[in-house]
Design a protein around this nucleic acid. Structure first.
Length: 226
DNA sequence: TCCTGATCATTA
DNA sequence: TAATGATCAGGA
């Protein structure tokens, strides 16, 4: 099987290409891409995401923008168990910790990234060898008005705390759909943030993540529609 | 058993 | 360092 690796010109083309991956084993996809397949994901946590980006023609890069900016689409793999429940939270983007003037929900990176997402469920069961796991059925999601409101409320609460210098007291338990957690290579990585006294302090970088309960609802809503 | 906090690889 | 792609794994 040969896949085109160019950038898709339309959302339909992107969706068709993603749909064609359904049922395919990682071992075969990796072989066709001439990509070595690791034993497990312990030291290659982003391997599946990178593999599928390759097949879908996403631009490799580290820019804080959507995967398919001309289509306005963000690609997210979603590891699920046998019942189709998410096994992991979903990283959205890095949380801004300084220079918050003028930052609001409508211009936020979170809103931009989540406006239109091509979800690609994948078998994430650790008891299955990585090579034998398969890709699931892709679907495109745009948040409902209700979901947007939940996300906005969470985002605003988190950003309020950050602006008040309380970033270090933000727990992953906070937020209905959107949580804030550390996001770094290790404990040595630090960045500037607003401290309790209003000055700059050094903290572990933080990221916005979608909680499993939220992505589970997204999957359920698609399942119910079928 | 599940979730939070920690961590891994890569690129620019 | 900061962004991308995320999953790991111990403690609650």
């Amino acid at each position: 099987m040969t896949m085109a690796l160019s950038r898709p010109d339309t959302i339909d083309e992107l969706f068709e290409r993603a749909s064609a991956l359904a049922g395919q084993r990682f071992a075969d996809l990796a072989a066709n891409a001439r990509l070595p397949i690791p034993k497990d994901l312990r030291r290659d946590k982003g391997w599946v995401g990178m593999l599928l980006e390759h097949y879908l023609g996403a631009t490799a890069g580290s820019k804080p923008i959507q995967d398919f900016p001309e289509l306005g689409v963000e690609l997210k793999t979603l590891p699920v168990d046998a019942a189709g429940k998410p096994l992991e939270t979903t990283f959205v983007c890095v949380a801004p910790l300084t220079q918050l003037d003028g930052v609001n929900w409508n211009t936020s990176n979170v809103r931009n990234k989540l406006q239109c997402v091509l979800w690609l469920p994948i078998d994430g069961r650790r008891e299955i060898p990585l090579a034998d796991r398969v890709v699931g059925s892709a679907f495109i999601w745009q948040p409902s008005a209700e979901q947007q409101l939940v996300l906005q409320n969470d985002w605003e609460e988190h950003m309020d705390r950050i602006a008040l210098g309380q970033v270090e007291s933000i727990s992953a338990r906070q937020g209905t759909a959107l949580q804030i957690r550390p996001k770094a290579a290790d404990g040595s990585v630090v960045t500037d943030a607003i401290g309790p006294d209003g000055g700059l302090i050094k903290v572990r970088p933080r990221g916005f993540y979608l909680k499993k309960s939220f992505t589970e609802q997204i999957i359920q809503q698609v399942f119910n529609a079928i």
